[in-house]
Structures are given as structure tokens and as C-alpha cells.
Design a protein around this nucleic acid. Structure first.
Lengths: 364, 364
DNA sequence: CAACATCTCGTTAACGTTACCGAAATGATT
DNA sequence: AATCATTTCGGTAACGTTAACGAGATGTTG
């Protein structure tokens, strides 16, 4: 025997893995139907036998076979997904949709049907129309990306009345949805961007916060990011000059004109693009080579953004796994309705940092 | 009708989701047994009926119900896991073990039994003993963290003779294992560290590469990281002064003495700790407050490392999700043996960057 | 053409759980 | 004491797949 080594054998565990509902029934001297009633704490069981069965279940650490359950149960649950459609400006919501589709693939096996409703994030009327459509059918739950705050709040109220569960992705309206929020902590996301900023530029630098999108007033969640960003930088006390600029357009030519003016005026050392439109800024500095390129930080693993990460135009891309958010939302609903597993209160999603050196391995 | 909106209905898909083996059988005018034979391309089917059934399967895009399959199949697969035990120096392997245990939890439902063999990464004899133990039982496959290159290579050869599949985690020996490697691309990992380095320190800085561990000659994979690191920095052409120092010890007091000497001698602007021992360096500069603290980059999401990330002592922690590696290895074996799903050739694991601002949300 | 091997295919019992149906026991009302 | 309602429980078909078993058809050999 060699002096120092360690060995764990899991066989004991493997041995008593077989405790099924049938064994429990035999041990408790009841039928499997009764055990099933106890397990799913249904009625039609006397307190005495219930206690007896529960004791045996606990004693043998019975774990239900989820696959058998999934096979047996014939439910006709239906979920709705209500998110923005991908615009020509950014493929962000395609990523989310990708995760949703993965979820559909996986959960359709259980007889769950999932309908997708895509609204135009620049036109509140499409959201209203879509949310009406959702209500006109009879869904058990709905996944929502809440862009229009007041309209979404009103919609969720209506859902509550009809006992339709709701869950948010991408951004949150505090205490609104019935099941919670799956997504990043936006304030921390802003702080992280500031943290990276502090590594990129020295004291006394000029930092430009850039908000690009038509209908900016709708994107309330951007402000949370900006708060985190400026809070962090101000606390650093490095005498940064911080400017917050809005460019409320979706047209590159328009944006370029504005950007040219601001950049010439401010001469920033770093530009922080608060959403996924960072590729626009990359393109700008690609075209105006005579202008000194500042450091650039932006969001989201879109192909067009990654291109500018790859060629060194963008320093950091911060990502929040939108596809995983979509998948997790459906996964949570599935567990909420089918398994009795819903202990968790969601933690915020991880915030990923991508550079030219690690983006190749970033899969979701 | 409002002008511009989009709506995807998945109901068509939901409608014909029900194509099961039974429907296929009816449509092909054969029994379900024959369909099963075709699906798992077993023998005992004439070419004619096989073709007919295959056509109908393809036509209706039949997807097997994995849960039913899992429920039905009664296999007695057994896997072995052969990785280092967690030393007092670093909890790294506990993380991997965590993922392994999650896999055991999940796959024991299928009657797969998994045994864990932990060897001492400082004592090759324990590895030899453990690998003998593995061979003495009759496993279908083994997950290996290859620390001792020649010994592991020999062991895998023996496995191949006995038709035992093998898969590597954490680091790779090219072309050795029968099923491949699940883990990070170590060269890129080094490059990423260098990339971050370039953000932390200006030109002409002194950079110290620090290898801390007893028995350093065994950790061949560290060299791959160092290569990536130096290649990147040299190409940058910023006249960095790069020094590579080994401290082959596991004892903090010993390490501190060496470190003190080197730090006083070199006065580095940045220290790159090539493994998970970065907390040791953090502790050192916590104790020697009079010495000017350099920037510090290190590896792995260990609690002791995260502490120094949180208090600002360490700038970046690079992580490779060891628990996910462990889980994925078992997951792959499960799929390899139980599902006919093994199309994939593994992509390297993502390389995560952690700072004081995003570590809170880093779960695995 | 008898005897036997081989190829092809269908029948059916499992896997562990759920849920419907109805039987038995108990309680309540005349 | 008879009737009816309610509570408690067991039997069992079903979910989609696998695999053991055996039946029939066809081929091969003497």
C-alpha cells in the first residue's frame, strides 16, 4: 500500500438508488396509488397513512424519476413569449430567440406548446396589439421582455387577474412580474464597464457615454447602467471628465454626422456605448481614420460587434447571455409547472467580459 | 390592424410533434419492433422494409423521446473518474469534483455507476496505484486529468487494449485519449492574460511570471500558458522586461522568503501567477505593506482567490469552469453510450474574466 | 422431400409514474 | 335499520421506448 492517497467509492449510493414508488408502497403496506397521492400531496389519504408513508419516503430518501414522470403526465400547458423582434439595427433579440427556440425544442416533448409574439420596440402600439393577442388565447404563463414600462405593468396586472404567471427577461420592473426576473443586474453591469474603463485610460481622461437608438425614452434600463457607470467613476476620484450624449437615431449616416460633431468637439479618450450599437461606433472610426481612435467599450456578442472586437477597434464587449436568459425563462416555467422543484430565487446572470483573445471560445 | 408587427406561431410544429414510433409503424405497415430495429440500425430487417421505414422516419422528422428511452433501457454502465485530490494548497480540484458529483446525481437515474479515484498530484506512485485499481475493475470509460504525462499515456494505451474509452479534462495530451479533451485552450489562456496585462501596465514595465508549486516539472501544461503569454507580449513590442521565476514550494513561509527576494530585486510592475496559487501572492503583499504592490493576474475561482479579488489586491482572475468540465465529461460519456448523439467534436471551454465588479454573479 | 439453419418480423412485458375508475369502509340522515 | 354521501384506498391502463421470445417464411443441405 502506498502511503498517501485517497479513494471515494460511490457504490453504497448506487446500491440504494433503486427506491422507487413501488418499494415505498410495499414497505408502507399500501398501494402505489396511495404513495403517489402522498408524494403529490393530493387528498384522499387519511392522516395516519399519510404520515406513515411520508416517514418511509424520508427514511429511504426517495427521489422521483423525473423521466418516468415526464413520460406519464399528459398536460397541455401553453406558454407565450413576448419580446421585441430583431430590428435591422441590432441582432440582439435573435440571440434571445435562439435560446427560446432551444427551449421549445426541449419542452415540446412534454406536450408544452409555446407561442412567440414579437413586437416592435420602437412602436408601442405593436406591443399593445401583441399583449391583447396573448390575452385572447389562454396561456398558463408568459415570458416578457419589458421595454414599455407602463404598458407592461398594466398588462401584467391583467395577467394576474386571469391567473396567468409572468416572468421577465433582459431587464426588470421591480416587483411587477409574478415569478421574477432572469437577467443581469444592470447597475453592476454599468459598474463593470467603469471598472474596465479605469484600466484603459489614465487620470484626467475624457470619457464619453453614448446612447444610440431611436425612441431612447423607452429604454429606461439604460439609465441604470449609466448610474452604475458614473457612480463608480466618480468614486474613483481620478478627475475624469464624463459626458453623456444621446443620439436618438437608427440611421448610420445620421449617427455619423452627430458623432463626428461630438468627437471633434470633445476628443474623448474612451467611448462607452451603453447598448449593443457599438458596431456603429466601430464603423465610424474605421471610416474616419484621421481621427484619433479612443478606447471603446460596448455590449453584446453580436457578429457585427465581434468583428470590431477581432480587429482591435473595440477593447471590451460585455455580454449577458441573452440566449441563456431566454432558455432559462422557459426552463423555469417548465419546472414551475411540472416539477415541484421551485425552491430557487433567481440570482442575476453572470456578466461576461470578452476581448480579442477570448471571444473565440465564447459559446452559449 | 396596426402597421408593423411580427408574429410567429409555432402551432404547426406543435401539431405534428406527436410522431412516435407507433405512428411510424402504422404508416410503414410494420410493427413497432421493426421500426425500433431500423432506428437503432440493428439487423433482422430486410433492406426493402428498412428503406421504407427510413423514408417515413425522415419524412415525418421523427425524434425519439429520450425520456422514454432512458426509462426503458436497463444498462449497467460504469465510469471511473481519475483526478488529483484537493491538496491543502489549492481547492481547485474540489471544484471539478463538484461538477463530477452533479453528473453522478443526474446520471445515476440511468443505472450508470460512477467511481471516483483521487490521486496525489505530487506523488506519481499514487497515480500508478489508482490507475491499476481502475484497470482491476471493469469500467466502460474513464475520465482523466492528465498530470503525469508519460504515466498517463501508458495507462491510456492499456485502456485502449481493453476497449475502455478515455476522455481528458483540465489539460490535454494531444491525440492520446480515445474520446478527446474537455477544457480550455491553454495557449489562448496565456494570451488572454497577456492581453489584460497590456491594459494594466504601460510600456517599459517589468513583468514577472510566477510559477508556484512543488514538483513543477510535472505541470507541463503551465509552459503552454507561458508560451501564449510571452508570445503575445513580445509581439506587442512595448519593451516589456519579462522574467520567469519558479518557486517550487507549497509552504507559504518558504514562498514568502523567495518572493521577498525576487520582488525586492526586480521591483515588478505586474505579477502573472500561472496557476491557482495567486492567493499566496495576495497574502504576501497584504503582509508586506511597505512594498509597492504590483498589478496581479491569476487563475481560478477559489474562495481564497476571490477574497483578494474582492479587496482589490488582485486585478483579474481568469477562470476555466473546472466544475463544468467535470460535468461535461460525464455528460459526454452518457451521451456517447446511451444516445446516438455523438456528433460533436469539443470546442475549447470558454475563458472567463473576473474582476471585483462581476465576480458576485459568477456561478457555474 | 425431409430436416434444419437463417432471415425477417410481430407480440409482449417491462421501465416508474400518473390519473381515472370503482370498491370498500365509514359517517350522516332519515 | 335502511339509505345515501363521503372518505379512503387499490387496481390498472397509459406514456414511448427497448429487448426477449417465438412464429412464420425462405434458403440450404442431405
Amino acid at each position: 500500500m502506498i502511503g498517501y492517497y485517497h479513494f471515494i467509492n460511490m457504490e453504497e449510493k448506487a446500491e440504494n438508488k433503486k427506491v422507487g414508488i413501488k418499494e415505498i408502497a410495499k414497505l408502507a403496506n399500501v398501494s402505489i396509488a396511495t404513495v403517489d397521492r402522498v408524494l403529490n400531496n393530493r387528498k384522499d389519504v387519511s392522516d395516519k397513512t399519510r404520515a406513515k408513508v411520508q416517514a418511509i419516503i424520508k427514511e429511504h430518501n426517495y427521489q422521483p424519476n423525473l423521466y418516468a414522470r415526464a413520460l406519464s403526465v399528459k398536460n397541455n400547458l401553453s406558454f407565450a413569449v413576448l419580446i421585441p423582434k430583431t430590428s435591422s439595427q441590432t441582432g440582439y433579440w435573435d440571440l434571445c430567440l435562439k435560446g427560446i427556440k432551444q427551449g421549445i425544442e426541449e419542452f415540446s416533448t412534454f406536450g408544452i406548446s409555446i407561442d412567440i409574439f414579437l413586437y416592435d420596440q420602437e412602436d408601442v402600439r405593436t406591443f399593445l396589439k401583441m399583449s391583447e393577442d396573448v390575452l385572447s388565447r389562454n396561456f398558463n404563463a408568459v415570458v416578457i421582455a419589458p421595454i414599455f414600462i407602463t404598458e407592461t405593468t398594466r398588462f401584467v396586472e391583467e395577467c394576474k387577474k386571469r391567473r396567468i404567471e409572468s416572468i421577465f427577461v433582459n431587464s426588470d420592473i421591480k416587483g411587477c412580474s409574478s415569478l421574477g426576473y432572469i437577467g443581469p443586474d444592470l447597475y453592476s453591469t454599468g459598474r463593470l464597464a467603469a471598472n474596465l474603463t479605469s484600466y484603459l485610460v489614465p487620470a484626467n481622461s475624457k470619457v464619453l457615454i453614448l446612447n444610440i437608438a431611436r425612441g431612447l425614452q423607452n429604454y429606461a434600463y439604460l439609465n441604470t447602467k449609466i448610474e452604475g457607470y458614473t457612480d463608480y467613476l466618480n468614486k474613483l476620484d481620478r478627475s475624469f471628465e464624463i459626458l453623456n450624449i444621446d443620439i436618438p437615431s437608427n440611421n448610420y449616416e445620421e449617427i455619423a454626422i452627430d458623432l463626428l460633431r461630438h468627437v471633434n468637439n470633445i476628443e474623448p479618450d474612451l467611448i462607452f456605448v451603453t447598448n449593443s450599437r457599438v458596431s456603429v461606433v466601430g464603423r465610424f472610426f474605421d471610416e474616419y481614420r484621421n481621427i484619433k481612435k479612443p478606447h471603446i467599450i460596448g455590449f453584446d456578442f453580436l457578429t457585427e460587434n465581434v468583428d470590431f472586437l477581432a480587429n482591435g477597434m473595440v477593447d471590451f464587449l460585455i455580454c449577458q447571455r441573452p440566449d441563456k436568459q431566454g432558455y432559462l425563462a422557459l426552463n423555469y416555467l417548465y419546472r414551475h409547472f411540472l416539477l415541484k422543484d421551485v425552491k430557487e430565487n433567481f440570482k442575476p446572470m453572470p456578466i461576461d467580459i470578452l476581448t480579442v483573445e477570448n471571444y473565440l471560445f465564447y459559446e452559449n
